[in-house]
Design a protein around this nucleic acid. Structure first.
Lengths: 317, 317
DNA sequence: TTTCATATCGAATAATTACTCAAAAGATAA
DNA sequence: TTATCTTTTGAGTAATTATTCGATATGAAA
């Protein structure tokens, strides 16, 4: 069986061809089969493969009035320079469906720039979903830098870091942050962040031309807890102190104020800047993120937002 | 029946929503019907409408080895700075299928530029097909200028000019060339081109940052003949003189040399420049254009080419 | 208001596409 | 080479999607 990469490539080429004939040229699978000299079933399988491997991309090319209005309302109300509102599939099991595509398109817009830029990325399902959707392109002139540590509490590196994925897609050099998200103590954090290479990367991230970050909630089982950076007790303390959400691990309350004296003292991520001058785009959606998004907007921690229709409606209600 | 534009817009919004749910979110039409509270048939109709109105766009996001190789071979052999080779549907009745999408994507790349640019366009089915595919976007900073007259021999203006279409899609100001493609005499051509506004537009077109042109054949029934700019007798004279193809009405032979003393003396289009410094991209495909494309490449009249697999294979054979 | 032309709708049905399963073909290792 | 495991294939069938057609609704004109 073709396990060698060459025959895999050939098969993907065929899949792309079949997918093109099906979606772009509007052939039936029977017609594709005839043109490619294969059976109808094989044509079907190739089209399905093209889909699975995302060789064909779909995009909605029509401004939907409701989404435009919601985006405008959010921009106006929260003083954002950028807001995109996408459609939503209420029953999809993919929590990033929709916003991932929009965020990827926005990333590509920056990556298409001819002069070199620095793009900074956070972590989380939304950012991961977005970078997965970024098309393969050649732009080695840019730099991709991580805003948040990629080390698990046990010291192991996360191989599925968003910047790894987008670096593979673009050929741009990556600058991961080889630190944990939250250190075990304030002192450890200070020592880690004092290291020259770390400081250099943080400085690079702070000079980034654009940043994309997730906005995390702090209710039942936030990633910070499940990833083992904070204990359940610390989570409860944060909640008692009014924690509403976090960005890059920095926890803030409903009015957007960073919580002092708790886990924030040990966060090793790039510091947030209030009312960022350069595009600093939050990507989040969903009812359980509503409070966190509201708080992030109240604190002016983001200059742009990508969310979905339902969330946007709740935000403007 | 809803003939008013408002209800049409609502319907298109619904169509976009249905198309998104179908293609992006991978719902079945039954699921869409349930989510949108309509019948399954209505859902089907909305999806079909979204297709018909091109509210959802498909694009192939996978480099096909064969196409890449052909493009590379053409670039190398003819000293082009740009060449794209697209897949082809041998039985499609749309002669621009494939190259239209690629040309539109290339146009959009330029139109996305933040600093203002000038884009020049020729005419013909291929260019028309390409501009039809350009997404709606907002870029009033650019200028769209025509490289070729938009007046029919009877003096009527062509309302379906490519620059009209692309101007509508982008909001960019248009600079049509209110002249015929071929004047009735050398003197008339000189008088027309001496007019200040015409000269200004021609100068603008010559300063364009990028140009897209069709490459026309001169065999049985070329557009120049069917549009009434030249007579059958003149066509025969051109053919006898070795005419192989034309760009913007300028006729050249197989070695790419402009034919002197015939219709070229009366062409009112923007002059061609040999080995253009800025991107000057030919868009053409098909067996009956092969000779014209070869001649255009031989004459170095274009710096880039968008064609299809079959044509590319013939060019490199 | 009535009439007419047109658009929309749902049901029925035809066409197309997706899935399942058993058989065949390739690869791998003894 | 043979045994064995895995992948691919095509037939059959189920599911989904597209089309046709008659009925109904709607706006415009009389």
């Amino acid at each position: 069986m073709p396990r060698d990469p060459k025959s895999d490539r050939l098969r993907l080429d065929d899949a792309a061809r079949a997918g093109w004939l099906y979606y772009v040229a509007q052939n039936t699978q029977d017609e594709i089969a005839a043109k490619m000299n294969i059976s109808r079933q094989s044509a079907q399988r190739l089209v399905a493969l093209a889909m699975r491997e995302r060789l064909v991309k779909f995009r909605l090319d029509h401004p939907i009035a409701r989404c435009m209005e919601l985006a405008q309302a959010i921009r106006d109300r929260h003083g954002l320079s950028f807001c995109e509102v996408t459609l939503v599939d209420p029953t999809s099991d993919n929590p990033a469906l929709g916003i991932a595509e929009v965020a990827a398109a926005e990333m590509e817009k920056y990556l298409k720039s001819e002069p070199p830029i620095v793009m900074a990325l956070g972590t989380g399902r939304e950012i991961r979903g977005a970078v997965d959707q970024v098309s393969r392109m050649t732009c080695p002139q840019h730099k991709i830098v991580s805003l948040v540590g990629s080390l698990a509490p046990d010291g192991s590196a996360n191989v599925n870091d968003p910047i790894t994925v987008i670096g593979d897609a673009t050929g741009a050099p990556r600058h991961p942050l080889a630190v944990p998200v939250v250190a075990t103590s304030k002192e450890e954090r200070d020592i880690i962040c004092a290291q020259i290479p770390i400081r250099r990367n943080i400085a690079l991230a702070q000079s980034a031309d654009v940043a994309f970050v997730g906005i995390g909630e702090l209710n039942d089982a936030p990633p910070l807890l499940t990833d083992g950076f904070i204990t359940r007790r610390e989570l409860q303390e944060l909640q008692a102190a009014g924690a509403a959400g976090e960005i890059l691990g920095w926890v803030f309350d409903d009015r957007g104020r960073l919580l002092h004296g708790l886990t924030n003292d040990r966060v090793a991520s790039v510091p947030l800047s209030p009312t960022p001058a350069r595009p600093f785009i939050g990507v989040a959606r969903g009812p359980n993120k509503l409070r966190a998004i509201r708080a992030a907007l109240a604190g002016r921690w983001v200059s742009g937002l990508i969310t979905d229709e339902t969330t946007a409606a709740a935000l403007t209600a």
